[in-house]
Simulated assay, not measured.
Amino acid sequence: MQSFIVTLQQMPAIYYALALLFGLCIGSFLNVVIHRLPKMLERAWQYEARSVLALESGEAEEPYNLAVPRSACPSCGHRIRWFENLPVVSYLFLRGRCSACGASIGGRYPLVELLTAALTVAVALSVPPSLAALLWMAFVWALVALTFIDLDTQLLPDQITLPLLWLGLLLHISPSSGLSLDQAVIGAAAGYGSLWLVFHAFRLLTGKEGMGYGDFKLFAVFGAWFGWQALPLIILLSSVVGAIAGLLMMLLLGRDRQIPIAFGPYLCGAALVYLFWGEQLVQGYLAWAMG
């Protein structure tokens, strides 16, 4: 393993090419996660509810997870063959349509694949070949999945956020991470606690819930990965972008302001901005404030 890392360090072009290809493949897998994980959670909740209420489970359900059943066209049920499932390439070759019935394939599939690949390469350009680079890649992959799941369902599944929280804390066991474990633990607590306080203050003042508990956990993740010092900038960026997006949706799309808007995508977007440009933003602000 060490020799492979040394080879990548000596031949960065191979490192970037592998990051691109690996990112495309992971993006294809994330499409499955985005589509299936919420349904898997719903099935689990229904099963638990029936168990608590002592209801008959009815007919036995077919296995449904990230591996089973095989991907198929939702219109005709055509099983997707391996050469029809190549990231981006298959979409272009099929011209965005099912090979069996001609039904349109959503453009979000290649979008997720390209976005994941671009973020993976961005991490590779920022972090030399190492275990830390792989962990940061896993971080951005998780944010892609959380963003689109939250947009679709307004859920931020614990199955992603909690492992990501622990992974962030484990990252900083190493002295070379640039952040002490103490700072990471304080960051996780500050991230969760700050939004928890905002949530309950808002509920006391308005009688409404302004965000979900998943947002607390996600903000704790960012505290664990970046430290508590990053949290003010991340929440500021996410709030500004979220407010602008909300206004645009109301003005241009006529969206009812009473309809809740997922906050997770804005938190994820702000965290990615901080990951790649956080230091420059902080330095620019300090230079402006002191000048």
Rank of each mutant, 00 (worst) to 15 (best):
G210W: 04
L236Y: 08
A243N: 03
A100F: 10
Q10H: 14
A142V: 06
V32P: 00
W166H: 03
T206V: 06
S28T: 13
E61H: 13
S75I: 01
Q2F: 10
V32D: 01
A60N: 05
L218V: 01
L205T: 13
T116S: 15
L167G: 10
T153Q: 12
P163M: 05
G264L: 00
A224G: 11
V6A: 13
P232D: 10
A289F: 13
L181W: 12
S194H: 06
P87I: 11
C73R: 05
P12D: 11
E48M: 09
L111P: 02
M211R: 09
G284V: 13
Y91M: 04
L135R: 12
L179F: 12
L247G: 09
L111H: 04
G212Q: 11
E113W: 03
L275G: 03
F219S: 02
I80N: 04
L286A: 12
R79I: 15
Y266W: 14
A19K: 02
L281S: 06
G168L: 02
V112H: 02
L115P: 05
I80P: 03
E209V: 12
A72G: 02
G210M: 07
C268G: 05
L151N: 00
I259A: 07
R50V: 02
F22D: 02
P265T: 01
A132G: 05
R203I: 01
V127F: 09
F216E: 00
F222M: 14
L204A: 12
V282R: 09
F29I: 14
L146R: 00
N85E: 08
L134G: 08
V240E: 02
S57M: 15
R257L: 11
E84L: 10
V33I: 14
S177R: 07
T206N: 05
P128C: 07
L119T: 10
A289E: 07
S90C: 10
G96T: 14
I80M: 08
V52Q: 09
G291Q: 11
Q9A: 13
L151S: 04
L53F: 07
C73D: 01
A100W: 06
F219A: 11
S176F: 04
S3D: 15
Y213W: 10
T153I: 01
W82G: 06
F276K: 01
A271F: 06
K39V: 09
C73E: 02
G254A: 09
I105T: 06
L195N: 02
V282P: 00
A270L: 04
A72I: 01
R81F: 03
L171G: 01
G106M: 04
E62T: 15
F226A: 10
L247A: 15
G27R: 06
H200M: 05
P157F: 03
L169F: 07
L171S: 06
A67V: 15
P87E: 09
P175T: 11
F139S: 00
Y192A: 14
L205W: 14
R81I: 07
K217E: 11
E113S: 07
P232F: 07
I14A: 11
S180R: 05
G23D: 02
V140T: 13
F226I: 13
P110G: 06
A190N: 05
A287I: 09
G207F: 05
H200N: 14
F276V: 03
E48R: 13
D182R: 13
M40G: 07
Y192S: 08
V32C: 03
G242D: 06
F219C: 07
L205Q: 12
L8E: 04
P38Q: 09
L275H: 03
G254Y: 09
D182T: 15
G168H: 03
A13G: 08
